[in-house]
């Protein structure tokens, strides 16, 4: 099981991006997970809780978008979503001249962070004593 390693890499990458953005805390992480990424979703969710402890991501939500495996056929041109465990032959014509167009994603799409906004700070300063 390598989901803990994956979760740690995820936490490191998100924490770095959050720090660069001047964020105090991460509220949510949106992840795109391909069917052929080789990562078990439930295991990753479990490991995420462990890996985020003591980091700016602690208590944040990991929101996973499942990306199905999609192939295009170079013989007949069909584009098909297929299960990962029955081979990658084209369901339309049966030929094996196919190319994977999506399904390998293991990508951080976006993160929701909590930041101290400059406007708000200015408002506070403008308030008469």
């Amino acid at each position: 099981m390598h989901e803990l390693s994956i979760a740690q890499s995820l936490v490191d990458a998100v924490a770095e991006a959050a720090t660069q953005a001047g964020a105090q805390r991460v509220a949510a992480v949106h992840l795109r997970l391909g069917a052929l990424a080789g990562v078990e979703k439930e295991a990753l969710l479990f490991c995420y809780d462990v890996a985020t402890r003591g980091t700016p991501l602690e208590g944040s939500a990991l929101i996973i978008e499942d990306v199905p495996l999609v192939i295009t056929c170079e013989a007949c041109g069909a584009r098909s979503a297929i299960p990962i465990n029955r081979g990658f032959a084209c369901p339309a014509c049966g030929k094996l001249h196919t190319r994977i167009v999506q399904g390998k994603e293991l990508e951080i799409a976006s993160i929701e962070v909590e930041v101290e906004t400059p406007e708000e700070v200015a408002d506070v300063e403008d308030t008469p004593a």
Binding site: A13, A17, L106, E116
Partner: peptide
């Protein structure tokens, strides 16, 4: 005051390894 912002990353989880 804290405000929630959405940051687009579009970054591979294993981009450091890659």
């Amino acid at each position: 005051m804290l405000k929630t912002r959405l940051l687009e990353l579009r970054q591979g989880v294993l981009s450091k390894n890659d």
